[in-house]
Nucleic acid binder design. Sequence first.
RNA 1: GAGGCUAUGGUGUAAUGGCAGCACAACACCCUGUGGAGGUGUCAGUACGGGUUCAAAUCCCGUUAGUCUCCCCA
Length: 436
Amino acid sequence: MAKKSRLQAPQGMHDVLGEDQPYFKRIWDAVNEIAHFYAFSKIDTPIAEYSELYEKGTGLTTDIVEKQMYAFKTKGGDALALRPEFTPGIVRAFIQHGMFSWPQPVKLYTYGPLFRYEHPQAGRYRQFNQFDFEVFGEQAAAIDAQVIQIFYTILKELKFGHLVVEVNSIGDYQCRPYYKKVLVNFLRPRQYSLCADCRRRIKENPLRVLDCKEEKCQRVKSQAPQVIDHLCEECKTHFKSLLEFLDEADLPYHLDPYLVRGLDYYTKTVFEIFSEGSIQQDQEGSQTVQRSALVGGGRYDALVRLMGGKDIPAVGAAAGVERIIALMKEKQLPAAEEPAPKVFLAQLGDLPKKKSLKLLEELRKAKINIAEALGRDSLRTQLARADKLEVAYTLILGQREVLDNTIVIRKMDTGEQETVKMEKVVEALKQRLRKS
RNA sequence: GAGGCUAUGGUGUAAUGGCAGCACAACACCCUGUGGAGGUGUCAGUACGGGUUCAAAUCCCGUUAGUCUCCCCA
């Protein structure tokens, strides 16, 4: 093992500096606001769980668990894993705290970092953030529609323009095994028209062949039997009902009969939300539209029971925050606005500097955002800095003022100065700021 | 897990194998209690480790990281 002693963040992980913070804030604000409106309560689960939880929940054969999990042993010998997704942890909490006996449905949301060990590239990191909404104890398709609507609304709040919801139903444990057989029977005679990966998938996970982007596989799959034609009555009714709700809610959806998802636990509804992607030119000059899913989710009616709880239906989804931010930047969508200070406090000398601390605290209580440079002594430098910050007013507190118990208010654009009594300064500033 | 491209002060950029330079930023001074302009100066770099060569930022190999593609996914 090569020793990585460079003074740098680990691969695929990065610092979020001040300039990016407003984007996160904007997203968290939108998420919290909409969660509150739809009566979701926040849950924070540990950043690590027993590995077993994901092996059982997410699925042992999924890439996420098989190849991408940060798994480790504690000193006490426990096998833990950094969470690669939210759902199993939330399901665990649901069971552990007996939420099946809470008033149903139980609506939970969360956001925070997830970890997957994979090759970083555009919009993909080893530590990344998602926000996640889950609803337990409700099997009506109305709830599926509501979850979709919530994510759609959050992205709209963030000012995304053209959003497309791709939906499909992949059946449940009654009808999917049957469809799988039909699909395999269709694919097997045609396997030599498929790419190598898909030939492998026929055995491992035939549904994923439908997801392949290879052109020759696309050709085969366009002839392939579709899941929605093989749904059992219950799943068919549920899916029809979902589409009606989506129509009613004016959500622009597109039925993608080939949408399947990578995780094992989905049943019935699966969906993804895309933004109209960026157009990229490849070497031959042909244009391909980059579409990476911003949101992915679906229904998982059997998971709670599978993990040891009661038979509780559930539906949920998660959105990738870094991807959303990348697109916000590309489309120049607004981040949160940080109110810039409009006042600067300049002080000269020891005594004024001491008085400054108290004055700053008074201004904070009065909610007047103020900048200072207590580390600087020359008035010239402090004014230069005030100028750079584009404040409207600068307070000047020197020896003379402290002795007279006054302070100077300088209006920066005109250079007018006025001396006011120290105890009046908060009021005087408020007045002036209100005017401008 | 596989592959392509890239790497020069804090940032952005120069340098036919031959003195590592410029701009911005930061800091100080010109100007001791009055900013915006201007001037002077300071700080600071060839990602890391090897190799070729009289001579390497430049060529070669490896590592690391970034970026992109496949895989997979948010």
